[in-house]
Amino acid sequence: MARSSVLRSTAWLWFLATVAVLVVGFRQAIFLVPMEETMGNLQRIFYYHLPHAVLGLIFPYVNLVASLGFLYWRRRDPLKALTADALAVASAEVTVLYVGICLGTGMLWGKPAWGIWWAWDPRLTTALILWLIYVSYLLLRRFSPAGQIGVLAAILAVFAAIDVPIVYMSIQWWRTQHPAPVFGPNGGGVDPRFYPAILWNLAGWAMWGIFLIAFRFALERRRQIAEQDAALQAIEASLETPQ
Rank of each mutant, 00 (worst) to 15 (best):
L152D: 00
G40D: 06
V24A: 15
V164N: 01
P122D: 07
L156K: 06
W205G: 09
A153S: 12
R216S: 13
E36N: 01
G69Y: 01
G115P: 05
W14G: 09
T176I: 07
M207T: 07
L140V: 07
W73T: 01
W117M: 07
R142E: 08
W200C: 09
L64T: 07
D121A: 06
A234V: 05
P196Y: 02
P179N: 08
Q233T: 11
M35W: 00
V158E: 03
L103R: 11
S238F: 12
T83A: 14
Y48A: 13
G204F: 10
W173R: 09
N41D: 13
M1L: 11
I45T: 10
A160W: 01
V6K: 14
Y61T: 07
I166Y: 02
W12T: 15
W173C: 02
R123I: 05
A66W: 05
Q28P: 06
N41P: 11
G100P: 13
L124E: 02
T126G: 04
F59Y: 08
S170V: 02
G104A: 13
A157K: 03
W200T: 12
F15K: 09
F183L: 11
Y47F: 15
I166V: 15
I171C: 03
A237E: 14
G147R: 07
I171Q: 05
K80M: 04
R76K: 15
W208S: 11
F46E: 10
A53F: 12
A226W: 06
D121T: 09
I198K: 00
G189H: 09
L156C: 04
W14K: 06
L108F: 12
R75A: 14
R8Y: 05
L212W: 14
L130K: 04
Q224N: 09
G188D: 03
A231T: 05
V151C: 00
A86M: 03
Q28N: 07
A153N: 00
G106Q: 11
S67G: 08
P179Q: 08
T18E: 08
A20Y: 02
A29V: 10
A154Q: 06
V21H: 08
P179W: 05
W114A: 08
F70P: 01
I166W: 01
Q172T: 05
T83Q: 15
A84P: 00
W109Y: 11
P60K: 01
H178T: 11
S170W: 00
A157F: 01
D77H: 11
T95Y: 04
A146Q: 13
T38E: 13
H49S: 12
L55F: 08
F59V: 13
V33I: 14
P179G: 08
Y72E: 01
Y168E: 02
R175G: 15
R223W: 11
G106M: 10
T126E: 03
W174K: 00
A146I: 02
S91Y: 07
A153L: 02
Q148N: 10
A226K: 13
D163I: 04
V65P: 00
F217T: 15
W117G: 06
A29N: 10
A66V: 03
P51A: 03
V99H: 05
W73Y: 15
F159V: 10
